[in-house]
Design a protein around this nucleic acid. Structure first.
Lengths: 140, 140
DNA sequence: CCGGATCCGTTTCGATACTG
DNA sequence: CAGTATCGAAACGGATCCGG
């Protein structure tokens, strides 16, 4: 447990451990985008738009810019097709994988979810390999 | 990695693994309340109000009700002082600790934070004991 | 003093339409 | 395909008030 002297947690939010993360975690969409990148390999504006949760295009634009400004995703032109834009996870973004994995486990245990139980169980038992796979896929 | 057949992720949001979690945590305040409960032992309306992030009282009321409706906290009268109200983590709420711990690690690595590095490192090395301590404190 | 409830101005969101 | 522009709806935040 963090020491109680921190319970004053004075003034500015950056002084508390998980606060700054809340610029990213504290909204309805950012983590879903990161989830799409980590779990589903979605990388384009179009992919995120059609991921199933009906995010509005202006909101998606805004969240992608915020994620980029925070160094979690990178925006690139597709080399083989200059019309397309690709979003890629940075190192910082990849490091969010453990958080998302824990959320999947939590949801699988306490909420109704359609994530196949055997996959969730596999993620739990082989967490390190699972994380390594994600890293390999993004870092090559 | 979750299978690509899931990349269609059809229709309703409850069909995707972490969505339901985001209906609860997709806002700026809920996770901070859970953090206060887990890390700092704050349990009263007054404690949450004065935790440092200046949440408005009406918002706090609303978030506590939502967290209670979702079975993450329980609302009780203080037995020794009937005027006071205490909020306690449920089993479901306690199970969020791994998520928060990962967030603290992530923030410590990638964001500027005042969480003492030695404590963060201790949390990482002794994760299981740390989790057990939280559980003991709430379940007695 | 504690735990809210109510009112109200401001910000943000979300749906739709439109554009290069 | 990858976004802008617009506008009504919803959420937020500050201030104030109120019962115990």
């Amino acid at each position: 447990m963090l020491p109680m002297r921190n319970s004053t947690c004075p003034g500015h939010r950056s002084l508390c451990p998980i606060n700054l993360s809340l610029e990213i975690f504290g909204d309805r969409w950012s983590l879903l985008i990161v989830r799409d990148l980590i779990f589903f390999g979605r990388t384009s504006f179009y992919d995120f738009m059609h991921a199933g949760e009906r995010i509005a295009s202006n909101i998606l634009t805004d969240r992608l810019k915020t994620l980029e400004a925070n160094g979690i995703v990178e925006r690139r032109r597709d080399e083989s097709d200059a019309r397309r834009v690709r979003y890629a996870l940075t190192e910082k973004g990849i490091d969010l994988a453990p958080v998302l994995i824990d959320m999947v486990h939590w949801a699988a245990r306490h909420e109704t979810t359609a994530a196949p139980p055997e996959i969730v169980e596999d993620m739990r038992l082989n967490r390190e390999r699972f994380l390594a796979d994600i890293r390999t896929r993004w870092e090559g």
